[in-house]
Design a protein around this nucleic acid. Structure first.
Length: 211
DNA sequence: AATATCTTCAACCGCTACCCC
DNA sequence: TGGGGTAGCGGTTGAAGATAT
């Protein structure tokens, strides 16, 4: 049996107080993000490391945008969701200043309903990819979009991109440059869905998938 | 004005991926 | 190479505020 990440009876739960927030901010500003497990003790917080990490990433980080999502952001989320499914961290990674939690909540409370009303929300999971599969599978998606975490994957990402270009395989106009720049504007949101539906034969290059 | 219902979103939980020894 | 520990992810929950009756 695995040990819990923290001694539950000795940690606070629920909403964070201003004092707790300040302690966390002060600590990270002077020591940086590091070992989340030891951070609470070091920062004088009665919270578990997980809770501290979540609070920092989703709420306290200085580079967060906050506020309402713009039309361009919403459009991008819809498109990336069509490609990736519920891989919120990958989607959030393409939206500077937004967190996975924020994107997930926005999808569930706004976009999903909006698409349902328009009759454009798939009734079956990953319906958009055809044949009941997501357009990008669980292994392909990180290779395409989440290369920051594992530098060794960069070559594969570049190969992947080159394969697409040389095979003239359909791919939405995503920013695949290995930079942190804001993605360029994309075509109208329904185009991708329609393109996928019109071209069920669209194929992805072999990445040694599902091995 | 009071109460019920709905909506939103911060936070938690459990699982998996990843790293290091 | 396998196992243990930690970080990160996605689903879910529940409190608080908004809206309807």
């Amino acid at each position: 049996m695995r040990k819990p990440c923290c001694e539950k009876e000795e940690t606070n739960k629920g909403a964070w107080s201003q004092e707790e927030d300040q302690k966390l901010i002060d600590y990270i500003q002077s020591h940086g993000e590091g070992c989340w497990r030891s951070l609470p003790t070091a920062a004088g917080l009665r919270r578990c490391g997980k809770s501290c990490r979540l609070r920092w990433i989703n709420y306290l980080r200085p580079d967060l945008k906050r506020g309402n999502f713009g039309e361009d952001e919403e459009d991008l989320i819809i498109r990336l969701h069509a490609l990736l499914g519920n891989r919120w961290s990958l989607i959030a990674g393409r939206l500077p200043g937004r967190t996975d939690n924020e994107v997930k909540n926005y999808w569930n409370s706004h976009i999903r309903k909006k698409l349902m009303k328009m009759g454009k929300y798939p009734t079956k999971p990953h319906q958009l990819g055809g044949a009941g599969k997501p357009f990008l599978t669980k292994k392909q998606a990180p290779k395409l979009l989440n290369f920051h975490r594992h530098d060794k994957d960069i070559d594969q990402v570049l190969d992947f991109k080159n394969d697409f270009q040389s095979n003239k395989t359909f791919l939405p106009d995503l920013n695949l440059d290995l930079t942190l720049s804001t993605p360029p504007p994309l075509p109208a949101s329904t185009d991708l869905v329609e393109e996928m539906q019109k071209n069920p034969q669209l194929k992805l290059p072999d990445l040694g998938e599902e091995g």
